Simulated scan of single mutants.
Amino acid sequence: MRTRLMAAAMVAAGALTLAACSSDDDPGDGGTGDGGGGGGDTIRIGIKFDQPGLGFKDGDTYTGFDVDVAKYVAGELGYTEDQIEFVESPSAQRETMLQNGQVDLIFATYSITDERKEVVSFAGPYFVAGQDLLVAADDTTITGPEDLEGKNLCSVTGSTSAQRIKDEYAAGTNLLEQPGYSECVTALTAGTVDAVTTDDIILAGLASIPANEGKVKVVGNPFSEENYGVGMPKDSDRCQAVTDAITKMLGDGAWQKALDDNVGASGYVPNADLNPPEPAACE
C-alpha cells in the first residue's frame, strides 16, 4: 500500500511540473500578441524632448504638436495612450534608431528628403514648415534673411538654416552657435543677438512659452520648405495605415486644434498655401 501511495504522489508531482513548464513556454492570452493595440502591447514613438510646442518632456508629461499628432495616429492604429512609449529621438540619431528597431515611428520635426528615403520610409507630410527668423517683438528692421548682413544670428550647432543664410542671403552675418534653441532665445531677449533661425513652427513653439510671450515674434517670411513626415523603418507595413490616419486628422478638425493648442499663443499663422498639406503616398 505504501509503495502504491508513493507512486501516485510521484505521478502527481510530475503532472504539476509539466503544467508549470507549459505555462512558462506558452504566453496564452497574457502574452505579447496583439494585446488589443494594433500589433503589440506598446508602440514606441520617437519625439523631441526639448522643443516646446512640438515635442517637450516635463517629468512624465509629454506635450506639443508632434505629440498630439502621434497620439492621434497611434489611436487610429489601435493603441491607447497608455500603450505609447515615448522615446527621445535627437535629429542626428533618427535614421539609426529606426534601423535598429529602437522606435517604431518618429514624429520629431522630421523633414522628408530623398537622402533619408533611401534608408527609412515616410508617411505624410502632416505639416509643411519653412526656415524663418525669430526677432524681438518690437523689431521692425529685420523682415527677412537678407536683413541680417552685419547682424548677430543665433542657431544650434550645425544648423542648415543658419548656413543657408550665410551662403545665400547675408554672408556677413555673425553666427553664434548654441547647444539648444532655448539658449538662443535667451540671447535674443537679452539683446546679445538680433535674430534666431530654424523652422518657423519650432520658433512659434518657443515664442508660445509664457516667459517669452510678447517679447519675441516670428518674422513670417520663410525661405525654405520643410515637409514633416512620420519616419518608420524602410518598407514598413504600417505606412499606408499611418497615411490614412494623417488624412483623417487633417480633415476632422483635430489637426487644426492641435496646432492652435500648442503654438497659437505665439500669433504664428502657417502658410495657408501649404497647410494643411495633402499627404502623399507612402515612400
Rank of each mutant, 00 (worst) to 15 (best):
E226G: 03
A8W: 15
A137C: 10
L176P: 03
I47W: 09
T113G: 02
D104G: 04
D199E: 15
V218L: 12
S182R: 09
A137S: 11
R116Q: 11
V196G: 06
T197D: 07
A129Q: 01
F86Q: 01
Y181N: 15
A190Y: 01
T189A: 02
V87Y: 08
S236I: 03
A258V: 10
D68G: 01
A280I: 11
D29I: 14
S89Q: 04
T160L: 11
D114C: 08
Q102M: 10
Q99D: 11
S91R: 07
I45H: 06
G220S: 04
D104V: 10
A245I: 04
G39W: 10
A272L: 12
T42P: 01
D167S: 13
E88Y: 11
D26F: 07
E81R: 07
V103P: 03
L153M: 03
A136T: 10
A20K: 01
D41Y: 08
K234Q: 15
T80M: 08
I202T: 14
G59S: 05
A281T: 04
D273K: 12
G172D: 15
N271F: 02
D260N: 05
Q240G: 01
Y126E: 04
V103R: 05
G64A: 06
L5H: 05
T247R: 07
V269S: 06
I202Q: 09
S111C: 09
A195F: 08
Q99Y: 04
S161G: 12
L148T: 07
E283D: 14
G39D: 11
A281E: 11
N275P: 11
V156D: 06
G30S: 11
G31L: 00
A136I: 09
K248G: 05
A211V: 13
K257N: 10
T17V: 07
C21F: 05
E146L: 10
G35S: 08
K234S: 13
G59H: 13
Q131L: 13
I165A: 01
F127D: 02
T197P: 01
E213S: 09
C282K: 03
K257Y: 00
E283I: 08
Y268P: 00
V120W: 00
L133A: 12
E225G: 03
E81A: 13
V69W: 00
G31C: 12
A272K: 14
T197M: 13
E85T: 13
E226M: 14
A92M: 12
E225L: 09
K48P: 10
I246T: 01
T141F: 04
A265V: 08
F122H: 15
G35T: 06
Y181V: 13
K257L: 02
D41H: 10
M97T: 10
V230P: 05
T80D: 14
V193H: 00
D66L: 04
A204V: 01
V73T: 14
G251Q: 09
A7E: 03
T189D: 06
S155H: 13
V120Q: 04
E283L: 12
Q178K: 06
G101K: 11
I112Y: 03
Q83W: 10
G191R: 12
G150D: 06
C154G: 15
S266G: 04
V269K: 13
P210E: 08
L259Q: 00
V218K: 09
A8P: 03
G150F: 00
S91N: 06
K166I: 15
T143S: 14
V135E: 02
G28M: 09
S91E: 14
R4V: 12
D29M: 12
S89V: 11
V193Q: 02
